[in-house]
Design a protein around this nucleic acid. Structure first.
Length: 171
DNA sequence: TTGTGTTTTACGACCTC
DNA sequence: GAGGTCGTAAAACACAA
């Protein structure tokens, strides 16, 4: 394996950062592979391992440390991106669910107004407002009976056992 | 070849233990 | 104080035109 055996001392690092970065050098594929392997075991770099790795790769210990720092940052970014996509997917599902539920609400509202129409036909003023008729059912009682029948409570509008006013199963 | 976008390397500033 | 993150500059690289 051929690594560049440069050390910190061998780089003529001057004062200015611009000049400094002129000596930026990429790690070889083999060096990166070794670093990746080590990183996969532990993404923290204890001083002992830093020295050993630096020796093995033939690079300054500082470069190993910096590689680990950058690698952790890259992993964090990837993980954030992954989380972001997962959240986006969940949001899409929730929005779809919301649309479905809105449709359901609309359907139920329509059903309710239909039922109210049927109810109103039972409560015509001519049939129940006659004074002095003791057998007349009040509007309030009628509504109570009617709604009770819808939820399976039987009553005057109740269907057969286990079925509501419209003959649907309520079990 | 060159312009441009992306990735990698390296650093300074600041924070935490 | 050593070693961490974060933000960023700049080199290195990839690639279309």
């Amino acid at each position: 394996m051929h690594f560049n055996h440069a050390t910190m001392d061998q780089f003529p690092y001057p004062q200015s950062r611009k000049h400094l970065t002129k000596h930026k050098k990429r790690l070889t594929q083999d060096q990166v592979r070794i670093l990746e392997t080590n990183f996969s075991f532990n993404n923290r770099l204890e001083p002992d391992r830093k020295s050993r790795l630096a020796l093995e790769l033939g690079v300054p210990a500082r470069q190993v440390a910096i590689w680990y720092q950058n690698k952790r940052a890259r992993e964090k970014n990837q993980s954030l991106e992954f989380d972001y996509k997962a959240l986006q997917l969940r949001l899409e599902n929730v929005l779809a669910d919301n649309a479905r539920l809105k449709g359901e609400v609309q359907r139920l509202k329509a059903e309710l107004s239909k039922i109210q129409g049927v109810l109103n036909s039972f409560i015509s003023p001519s049939s129940c407002d006659e004074v002095g008729n003791a057998n007349l059912i009040s509007k309030h009682d009628l509504e109570r009976e009617f709604y009770a029948s819808l939820i399976g409570g039987g009553g005057a509008f109740g269907g057969q056992d286990g079925y509501d006013f419209f003959g649907r199963s309520v079990s």
